[in-house]
Simulated assay, not measured.
Amino acid sequence: MSMKSAALIATTALLPMAALSQELPDPKVLVITMFDGETQPWLDNLDLSEEIAIPGLPESAPALSCNDDLCVMTTTMGFANAASSVAAVALSDRVDLRDSYVLVAGIAGVDPEEGTLGSAHWARYVVDAGLRHLIDPREIPETWESGSLALGTSEPGGEDGWTAGTELYELNADLTQRALEITKDTELADSEQAAEYRATYTAETAQGAPFVSACDTLSADTYWHGAIIAKEMENRVARLTGGNGVYCTSQMEDNATLAALERAAQAGKIDFDRIAVLRTASNFDRQAEGQTAAESLGADSGGFGPATENAFRVGNALAQEIVSNWEAWADGVPKEN
């Protein structure tokens, strides 16, 4: 090593983080998607030609796709992939996310009482559907209605159990509310197939056209389906949120994503108050009347296309508001204009 190189390394080591970070990409918005179908609308509609390779990302999606203001990443599906990918980016020394807003934008199942195919829902609470005890219904006591019970308890509805600490996240209410206000009138995609399928449900909300709302999302590695499990999940959201949560969407990553972001926030790498979670409905989480759960799970509802498109349309409406009015957003979520 030359004396010049050694001096440069020594000087760099003494520089404050603020000076080093000036040379790093510092997007105003980081968009987190979970698989290619969610990522593609962002790539198709925005110029994201700059790639930033991040060690630790999956081989199928090894880099962020960026412009000067916004980056998109793909975690790949499930808790393990989401946590690993998000941690790799959030803790990376190749991008500065300390001032960035983080937007999770993906598809989900939806409760037909709270949403419909193609509808878009901003999360207030993010709840883990796992991290519980589960006994097969065929082996539970006759007096039990369910084999699902909280960790550390001995019967359904029991209290004073133990937790893993990632069962519940409450997002910044001001950001969620501003996101809803900004995006509620977004023109949403729909399809004739989705309209025909939603007509088989009796719930008025399910039968209607797609819309934007704020409610709450439930995460699980297991892609569960059906009215009986859905009722258990509704109860879980209500219990963990003290009755304040309204379950509407079901997906496979968000608690894991938030756990990784929480660790990054504790390390001073991101601002946890700048996280928004958007999920759009690609399918109903339970069967219609006269339909079995298995038939519903295997049905082609026509919701996938509108859901992936609307995750972009609604998410991008918020992202572009942040980017185009950065002076107002730079120091935190602004009040309504």
Rank of each mutant, 00 (worst) to 15 (best):
S2Q: 11
A7C: 11
L15I: 08
P16Y: 10
M17E: 15
E23L: 08
P25W: 06
D26K: 08
G37K: 11
S49M: 08
I54S: 05
I54T: 05
I54H: 02
G56W: 01
L57M: 15
P58S: 12
P62A: 10
N67A: 11
T75S: 15
F79V: 10
A80D: 14
S85M: 04
L91I: 05
D99M: 06
S100Q: 05
V102A: 03
V104T: 10
V104D: 01
A105V: 01
A108G: 13
E114L: 04
V127S: 05
D136R: 09
P137D: 13
I140F: 01
S146F: 01
S148W: 08
S154F: 04
E155H: 12
G157R: 07
A164D: 13
L168V: 15
T176F: 00
L180E: 13
K184P: 00
L188E: 04
Y197L: 09
T200L: 07
Y201G: 04
A203R: 07
F211V: 06
C215K: 04
C215Y: 03
S219P: 11
A230K: 01
K231H: 11
N235D: 15
A238S: 15
G243H: 12
T249I: 08
Q251H: 12
M252I: 07
T257S: 11
A265N: 09
F272R: 02
A281R: 01
N283V: 07
Q291I: 09
Q291S: 13
G303S: 08
A307Q: 07
A328P: 01
W329R: 02
G332F: 10
P334Q: 07
E336W: 11
